[in-house]
């Protein structure tokens, strides 16, 4: 018996994986896309705001100047590559320099992972809404150039649902009060998913 025959005999002990039907594949595809979108959103939310004040001169990586939407305003920002394959974004918020760390990966056709570029991350930041509480206690949602106050729109469970539209594309946000001054939110482009929520207000950029 040759080594090849031996090898094939040994690995023939492995069971075949379960049979996949095309209909099932379509269902998996839909779920898969949703999971990818959710995973990207979670990755962004987890790192935004994690940084403190930093200065561009302290950072050694390659710098890129970008313009992104932050707090409803077009903001000039410096992106500096960090050791983790992500970027440190630094911007001037009027009363001093602020920074945050941000990174992400894309999955290519061969299943390989590639770190997102500063431009790709900026596009992701632009397409993601943000929720902030100001010094007066008012809660605001920002999306591109839009700014909407939602302080009084939370239901008895501390949940607010809102639809925002930019250049014909709608996003559906569900914002939840987690505690004193803390909010979490989910963002989706799927109206069916958004239909599960209760109070809805609609804003757009027209």
């Amino acid at each position: 018996m040759t080594d090849r025959e031996r090898y094939k005999q040994a690995f023939s002990a492995l069971p075949s994986s379960r049979h996949l039907e095309v209909e099932e594949m379509e269902q998996i595809y839909r779920t898969h896309r949703k999971k990818l979108a959710t995973a990207a959103a979670i990755a962004c939310a987890a790192v935004i705001g994690a940084g403190g004040t930093a200065y561009a001169a302290d950072l050694g990586g390659i710098q890129t100047r970008l313009s992104i939407w932050l707090f409803g305003e077009q903001t000039e920002i410096t992106a500096t590559e960090n050791e983790d394959g992500g970027y440190t974004f630094i911007y001037d918020r009027g009363d001093g320099t602020e920074s945050f760390g941000f990174g992400g990966v894309s999955i290519d056709e061969d299943g390989g992972l590639t770190s997102l570029s500063a431009d790709e991350l900026a596009a992701h930041i632009n397409a993601s809404a943000s929720v902030e509480k100001d010094e007066n206690g008012s809660v605001w949602v920002y999306y591109y150039d839009q700014k909407t106050e939602i302080t009084d729109l939370f239901d008895e469970n501390g949940v607010c649902s809102i639809t925002m539209t930019h250049e014909g594309e709608s996003i559906y946000l569900t914002i939840t009060q987690d505690g004193e001054g803390s909010y979490s939110y989910t963002q989706t482009n799927d109206p069916q998913e958004a239909a599960m929520t209760t109070t809805t207000i609609i804003t757009d950029d027209d």
Partner: peptide
């Protein structure tokens, strides 16, 4: 499964 989804 993921590989076939990617092909699909």
């Amino acid at each position: 499964q993921d590989t076939f989804v990617q092909y699909y």
